[in-house]
Simulated scan of single mutants.
Amino acid sequence: MNIFTLLFSAALLSLIAWAIYRSFRNKNVYAVPPAFPEEWRSFLLEKVNFYKALSPSEKLRFEADIQYFFKRVRITGIGLDVKDEDRLLVASSAVIPIFAFPEWEYSDLMEVLLYPDFFSEEFEFKGHNRGISGLVGTGGAIDHVVIFSKPALWMGFDNRTDKQNVGIHEFIHLFDKQDGNLDGIPAVFMEYQAVLPWLHLIKSKTDEILSGKSDLNSYGALNKEEFLAIVGEYFFERPRLLQKKHPELYEALSSVFKTDLAKRMND
């Protein structure tokens, strides 16, 4: 077998493997309605403040983004049946951080798993040491997967005063990861000259957290990637409060996510 035959065979195998991967990734076991159901729209108005604050034309785009997400990403229940309302909260969590980027998608995400409760590092949702509410899979069998505790996912949208939303939190991690690094610096979406000021801001706000002089979630002091995720939750959940208490942080996040939420959302 000569070198050209080997190269052709390798290319053909790669093409077949890619086709299988695409087929598997796009396999949709959920029949997405061609028209957005009115009951879905009512549910979003009740549960998702971000959607509620959008203009009529923006609402239509948000709905289209949800339908597209359903067509691309499987949502699977582990030990539970997944309802349309669960799917809508998962998809809303995904759409919110990237709404200002219409051409962008979570290209590496294949599946979202919903667990019936908080889970452990061994992915057990029964027994002891179950404190995890959400997780972005990295490597191995859980690569291209996001896992949520269903009760925690719902709590993020039910409680509108705690500045926390695990759904948004985990999808901000994927947003951050788009440049290849999960490091709290969303370089793809951040101007180069803004990176150093952002790092200084992380340092000063982390110092405030560690000294007990901040209302930011203490989990944000763990590392830069968790800082971005927890302040991102705050930004999308309570934008006016964030602007009032942390104006410099609010301005930085408005630039990153390309939206000035304090002007439109009621905390």
Rank of each mutant, 00 (worst) to 15 (best):
P151H: 09
W154V: 08
L113T: 04
S218I: 13
I66Q: 01
E58R: 02
N26F: 12
F70S: 02
R87H: 05
K150E: 06
V145F: 01
L15P: 04
K163L: 03
N26H: 13
I20R: 10
K205W: 10
R61P: 09
L88M: 05
S107A: 11
S23T: 14
W40I: 08
F189I: 01
L89D: 00
E39M: 09
V82R: 12
A187V: 14
K177N: 14
H128D: 15
N2A: 01
P97A: 04
F189N: 00
G79F: 07
L199G: 00
L241Q: 10
A19M: 10
F157S: 02
M155H: 10
L196C: 03
E251G: 08
N129C: 02
E39G: 06
I142M: 11
F36P: 01
I172F: 05
G156H: 04
N159L: 14
K203S: 09
S57D: 14
M1Y: 11
K244C: 07
L228W: 11
H173Y: 02
L114D: 09
A10P: 00
I16G: 07
W154R: 13
E63Q: 12
H200Y: 05
S255V: 01
G232S: 10
I168L: 04
F118R: 13
H246K: 07
F189Q: 01
G220E: 08
K224T: 15
M190C: 01
E226N: 08
L174C: 04
G127C: 00
Y192V: 08
W40K: 11
I172R: 13
L249F: 09
K150G: 00
H144W: 06
G134M: 00
I209H: 00
L113Q: 12
P33T: 13
V166W: 03
F50N: 07
K52Q: 15
L54T: 05
R264Y: 11
D81T: 15
Q243F: 11
I20E: 12
I75H: 02
P56K: 10
N2T: 02
K150D: 03
L249M: 12
N165E: 07
K205M: 08
A152G: 04
L261Q: 00
Q164E: 14
K245L: 13
D65N: 11
S254C: 04
L6T: 00
A221G: 05
L228M: 06
V231C: 02
D143M: 05
W154S: 02
L88S: 09
K150V: 03
F171C: 03
P247Q: 09
V73K: 08
P186A: 14
A94H: 08
P197I: 02
A35P: 00
T5R: 00
A152S: 10
T206K: 14
S254M: 04
N159S: 10
W18Y: 14
I185V: 13
S55G: 05
K244I: 08
V73W: 12
P186W: 11
A91Y: 08
T76V: 15
K59F: 03
V145G: 02
A100Y: 07
L199Q: 10
E85R: 12
P102D: 09
R130P: 03
H173F: 07
E122A: 11
D179R: 14
F70L: 15
Q193L: 15
I168S: 00
T138P: 06
K150A: 11
R25M: 08
V90Y: 00
S14L: 14
E63L: 08
L182F: 14
F101C: 06
F157N: 03
F24D: 12
E63S: 01
